[in-house]
């Protein structure tokens, strides 16, 4: 253990905040889907992985990056809608755990399909954005951009949910699944739109992640458990809770990783998570009922 309150520590803290922006964005999509449809997509990080490959290939084919990113977002939004239509809808009435496990099958399918289509090599976009020097510390631009875009998109989602008609319908369905269909809301359409938005958020996360990370078929397993942990910690379906939880977990990873080996940063985060759940079983920020 080697930890001092020096400039490197501060750098780790700030990097943790930047990482938390990305984690919060990833958790947001999952929380939206859980809050509205009551289903956990355990293959959520695999959708991000597919999006990363899509953007990678579009970019390598000569498409400018912003267009490639847009293609990725649309692609994964469609994939999200397809996932709901083909896989989730048939099991909507069966046991909740079956809904979680059925997307686990999709996890295997996507991972294997990516291995077959793209191989197991690490792929990199090759865009170098340099880094931002600040008071003797340095932060890579890709992380800063990720953070800003992630926050902006969360704000956009919030505006969409609170200011538009369909957004209001989505929130209403999340509050009462039985009554809203009686009020004339087509729940099937709302579910489909929500799935597409959730997928679109995964696509956006993919567009930001290709700037920072190498792509390989198992990258979903690296981020997936982390995202679930953040969502549960914040209270499944609670978007604001997930947001705050992302920052807590981000700090565990960053500080733990800078004081000890990287794995121990993650391990302490998981340990904290388990203890926290035993203290507040419905998540740290769940409304008391």
């Amino acid at each position: 253990m080697d930890c001092h309150l020096d400039i490197f520590f501060l750098e780790a803290v700030l990097n943790g905040i930047l990482l938390a922006g990305l984690l919060a964005l990833l958790a947001l999509g999952l929380n939206l889907i859980f809050g509205v449809i009551d289903v956990v997509w355990i293959c959520y990080a695999e959708l991000v992985m597919v999006g990363m490959y899509g953007i990678h290939h579009a970019y390598k084919a000569g498409v400018p990056f912003p267009v490639a990113a847009l293609i990725g977002i649309v692609l994964i939004a469609l994939a999200g809608a397809a996932l709901h239509h083909l896989v989730i809808r048939p099991v909507l009435d069966s046991a909740p755990i079956n809904q979680l496990l059925v997307t686990g099958g999709v996890l295997f399918l996507l991972q294997a399909a990516a291995t077959m289509a793209f191989g197991i090599d690490f792929k990199n976009l090759g865009i170098r954005l340099g880094s931002l020097g600040f008071a003797g510390m340095s932060f890579s631009w890709s992380r800063v951009i990720t953070f800003v875009v992630a926050l902006a998109s969360m704000l956009a989602l919030w505006l969409f949910l609170s200011r538009t008609y369909i957004g209001t319908a989505i929130r209403a369905i999340a509050q009462d699944r039985q009554i809203m269909p009686l009020m004339g809301v087509d729940s099937r359409r709302v579910y489909l739109i929500t799935s597409a938005i959730g997928g679109g958020l995964a696509g956006l996360a993919a567009a930001l992640m290709v700037l920072q990370y190498d792509i390989y078929p198992q990258i979903g397993l690296q981020f997936g458990p982390l995202i679930f942990m953040i969502c549960v910690l914040g209270g499944l379906g609670n978007m604001l809770g997930g947001f705050i939880a992302a920052f807590i977990i981000g700090q565990f990873i960053a500080i733990g990783g800078s004081c000890m080996a990287t794995e121990w940063g993650y391990a302490t985060a998981f340990l904290f998570f388990m203890v926290a759940i035993f203290i507040r079983p419905q998540g740290l920020f769940a409304a008391k009922s």
Partner: peptide, 25 residues
């Protein structure tokens, strides 16, 4: 605390990850 269903599955998933990370660490 009656942590069942989704919560139980995701909590035990965290346990798996924790043990794996300890092994790697």
């Amino acid at each position: 605390l009656r942590i069942t269903g989704h919560y139980f599955a995701l909590l035990t998933l965290a346990l798996t990850e924790f043990v794996r990370l300890c092994i790697v660490g």
